[in-house]
Amino acid sequence: MARKLKLRIWRGDADNGGLQDVVVDANEGEVVLDVIHRVQATQMGDLAVRWNCKAGKCGSCSMEINGKPRLACMTQVAAYGDDETITVTPLRAFPVIKDLVTDVSFNYKKAMEIPAYEHPTELKPGEARMAQIDVERSQEFRKCIECFLCQDTCHVIRDHEENKKSFAGPRFFIRIAELDMHPLDRLRNRKRTAQEEHGLGMCNITKCCTEVCPEHIRITDNAIIPMKERVVDNKYDPIRWLGSKIRKREGME
């Protein structure tokens, strides 16, 4: 059964903009992206919204719904009360392009700054073998759909534009963790670069990235904190440091 849904949609661009009220029909079982499309089709033909799969797997329709970073395609209209007005805005950590579309190129630049996996030179193609328990650990991180909701909610860059230069953000800490935990990756300085080049030390573990992740990746517990502990191994633990100097085996475990 259709209901009249009150929406407030942010419309504008980098120069100016504001919230506009609209009332739209919403059918049972619909998600916020459905009603945004209906608004686009019936009332705001030039409303800009980025979307693709409508199945929570492409990470395109990231926006903020009632102030919370969410995927519009995974947010049920029924979760909101009949009298409630749903406010929809673009991601507030990134520059706005138009309406609900933001420029997330910051993330692609950060992705390029992280060195790729380096395969052992002594292994020929087809010779590499990994045990399932070693694979499982990083498979959690491979679930990332790059919706950048974690980047959007992270206060280090959301609230401090100037930190974008020196802080990669939670999405890329899981990438670094995945590679540093990879049994075959030859690059051994990821702990140092995570701290010194990608800003791991700026994270104060308030776990917002984990709270908003639509794939339920335990970003803080399984990637950021383990990486912080690995940095402590190398940098702030004199016993481990001494051991690594004597036995020359950083990261060889």
Partner: peptide
Amino acid sequence: RKAYYRAFWMSPPACAVAEPHSKYTGET
């Protein structure tokens, strides 16, 4: 750390709630 950074230092007070500080260097 999560608990008191949020509750005492409001850095941030909650997710997607802007913190009141003009500068932030984290645990560096």
